[in-house]
Design a binder for these strands. Structure first.
Lengths: 304, 304
DNA sequence: GACATCCATAACTCATGGCTATCACGACAG
DNA sequence: CTGTCGTGATAGCCATGAGTTATGGATGTC
């Protein structure tokens, strides 16, 4: 049914040498071992492959028919090994960077530069991940490193470097009463207490603690928020806010993605700032991953 | 270094099913056996082929790279098996018929007809063999059956059916004194005793007893013949006789190949007739071979 | 006739590939 | 929250496979 590549190799060697002893030497096996394997192969294909009469070894008609196929398969296996090696090398040098929205702030080019200067063969690949996965692909292995919002669910499975810490804003429709109040405020800001009764746009429930974080549950004293809708991307958030379905907290760096047309964003007093981090799986020790985290720590140091 | 075809088959099956248990069922092996073999293959190529995390099995990049090659090699092996099968079938139906000179006498068509009527798939192939091999290729296996002159050296290794028994002639140059004597003879023949002192053309020494036979040693009473030269074909014999190098005994059926231009042939009294037979190796039991010998026996019966 | 060459055989060892039984773990239903 | 199911990994066992060395037997060679 199946054939062992070794047998084909043996067969091709004997077919070339037409001498079992020399072929065995070339193959670094004993002559009886070679004889036996050829016999096995003959038994398997159900026909003699070599005439061994009268001190001469020569191919039979069947052997003649098999030889080119055997050579072809040996070459095919070499090609397969080469392809595997290539894929392995490519994989070794590829770093998949997950992100739910673009981190912006000039982070990607800065990190890319640092990574490539350390590992010239590195090929960073960006991967967009739905907001429903707060680990941005780390959890299911589809990303090697990721831009995530802290706090991260299952936080002890990951290590991270914070790359940005910014006040959170609230996105409001342009004609909202609070928009006017912020304009009148000395800092152009609003208090979170003024937002307590507003309907909020929430992340999908799969987001876990992150959903709570962007609803600022910790600043609500156990009073449940009103949920105006569920959003899974910046675009959806913009639409929902503009339509008056609710308001939404935003990281400063993400404001440009949501604020346009009928939607504005104003700072919120009385809630903790957002923290954007680069994270990786804790058990992932690959050099490229470590280098990216190190680069993130450096960048945070220089920009803070 | 080498792969076992089985491992590729297993790999392809798992890659299709993306489920070890189902793939194992399809392959008629137990699930642990399959798991183990896949692990072995991964160890051999030096890279994971499947991600098995989170209850899902899916191909890695390396696995993706290997899969088409694996499928290609499996297909290649099937093609190889088909080629072998075809060669085997062709060989099974091929009968190589050795002959040193054409047996003539309408024997070939008669035997061919009988063979094909018994085995419609049979493909008789004619093969010309030098006179140096009196077995006409039977000894070294290059012929399956052969037209031979009796007695055959190593006669017990072969079985045969006599297809022609004819007086022997002697080939003479046209102007030879014995030619005139034969013309004067009532039967147009000469006595072998008249030839005893003539130089004879002999077969190569490898021909063994056949050489002695065509020198008619048994009719010489231990007196060594004079050897005028060694000949390996009908053409050489003609030339040598025409040039006066010597005379040569001939089977009646072979006379047309030698007699022309300056060479004539006349019957010889006092020596045994020649016997042409179809022979095969005694241990060769193949039906086609048996059928050809049987056909030869029949034909001899009808023509004698 | 001793010798060299070359393939086949014999007897043995150890790795390989298969099996069954069982475990570990996530998903899911009650 | 707990029992069950589905799925892959692990453990232990056994038959076979593929290698070894030693030797035999046939065929040329000097």
């Amino acid at each position: 049914m199946d054939v062992h590549g070794r047998d084909l190799r043996y067969f091709a060697a004997v077919a070339e040498e037409l001498n079992f002893t020399r072929a065995a030497e070339r193959l670094f096996v004993s002559q009886p071992a070679l004889s036996k394997q050829i016999r096995m192969l003959e038994k398997q294909v159900g026909a003699r492959l070599f005439h061994r009469d009268r001190r001469v070894v020569r191919l039979t008609v069947v052997g003649e028919a098999l030889l080119p196929h055997a050579r072809g398969m040996l070459a095919a296996w070499e090609a397969a090994e080469a392809a595997v090696e290539e894929a392995r090398a490519a994989e070794l040098h590829t770093l998949v960077i997950g992100m739910s929205t673009s981190p912006g702030r000039g982070l990607l080019p800065a990190l890319r530069t640092r990574l490539v200067s350390r590992y010239p063969h590195a090929r960073p690949v960006l991967r967009q991940v739905n907001w429903a996965d707060p680990s941005a692909g780390l959890a299911d292995g589809s990303s090697d490193v990721a831009f995530v919002w802290l706090p991260l669910p299952d936080g002890d499975r990951y290590r991270h470097a914070v790359v940005a810490q910014e006040p959170r804003l609230v996105a409001l429709p342009q004609g909202h009463p609070l928009a006017a109040r912020a304009a009148a405020d000395g800092e152009g800001a609003v208090d979170f207490t003024d937002l307590l009764d507003e309907p909020f746009l929430a992340l999908p429930s799969e987001a876990g603690p992150l959903r709570d974080y962007w609803l600022a549950l910790d600043a609500r004293d156990d009073r449940a928020p009103r949920i105006g809708g569920v959003v899974g991307s910046a675009e959806e958030t913009h639409e929902a806010v503009a339509n008056g379905q609710g308001v939404a907290l935003l990281a400063t760096g993400n404001a440009p993605l949501v604020v346009r047309d009928e939607v504005i964003a104003v700072p919120v007093r009385g809630i903790s700032p957002s923290r954007l981090a680069v994270a990786a799986r804790r058990d992932d020790e690959r050099p490229l991953v470590a280098a990216y985290l190190a680069a993130a720590a450096e960048v945070a140091g220089t920009t803070s």
